[in-house]
């Protein structure tokens, strides 16, 4: 029965982006498979799908896990076009990854031709408190800057290793997307808009 429910729901395309080695795959795998994988393979592109109830509503998530290395940037715009919601991951132990967050978000706006879009920023690896170099306030500040014009943007700290906030980060992203769709940003709303020609 649950199967039929999940079939009837349109999948939500979530794209996970962020610079290399920040834990995008770890986060995705922890969420979809509930495991923390120790192997250290750079991703080219993986996709996972998971169905779950969020706020008593069925959601089918298609999660696209992407490559962070600069060599693969040419693929970026392609998958960005497909995404309905974005999870931008950085590592709190890696300054470079954090510096890239802003430009990635800007790229989303540009590719999507939107000023607002559901974007969740995840500060990963917070179990490594000793190596931490990005303060929570720093990340909070960045997100607040975006929130001024994009209310569908939020920041959550996660740890893929300890599974801290892993579900929350995906669920909240879906909530943001639902909010965004409800407020008329969705494609369906647009379709009905133009009745002329």
């Amino acid at each position: 029965m649950s199967k039929s429910v999940s079939k009837s729901v349109k999948p939500i395309k979530i794209v996970v982006i962020g610079s290399g080695g920040v834990g995008k795959s770890a986060l995705t795998l922890q969420f979809s498979k509930s495991k923390f994988f120790l192997d250290y393979d750079p991703t080219i592109e993986d996709s996972f799908s998971k169905s779950c109830y969020i706020d008593n509503e069925m959601a089918r998530l298609d999660i696209l896990d992407t490559a962070g290395q600069e060599e693969f940037t040419s693929m970026r715009e392609q998958y960005m076009r497909l995404g309905q919601a974005f999870l931008v991951v950085f590592s709190v132990t890696d300054r470079k990854g954090f510096e890239e967050v802003d430009s990635l978000i800007q790229l989303i706006y540009r590719v999507k031709d939107r000023e607002a879009f559901p974007i969740m920023v995840a500060g990963n690896k917070i179990d490594l408190q000793n190596d931490r170099c990005i303060d929570q306030s720093l990340a909070q500040e960045l997100v607040q800057r975006h929130q001024e014009f994009n209310p569908y943007c939020a920041y959550i700290e996660t740890s893929a290793k300890t599974r801290l906030n892993v579900d929350l980060v995906f669920h909240d992203l879906v909530r943001l997307l639902r909010l965004y769709n409800a407020k008329g940003g969705s494609k369906q709303a647009k379709k009905s808009k133009c009745s002329l020609l």
Binding site: R114, E115, A116, G184, G185
Partner: peptide, 15 residues
């Protein structure tokens, strides 16, 4: 470039 646009439901977000 087309143009940036604000999205519905977004208060005062429009340039």
């Amino acid at each position: 470039c087309g143009a940036s646009s604000e999205e519905g439901g977004l208060d005062d977000s429009c340039p």
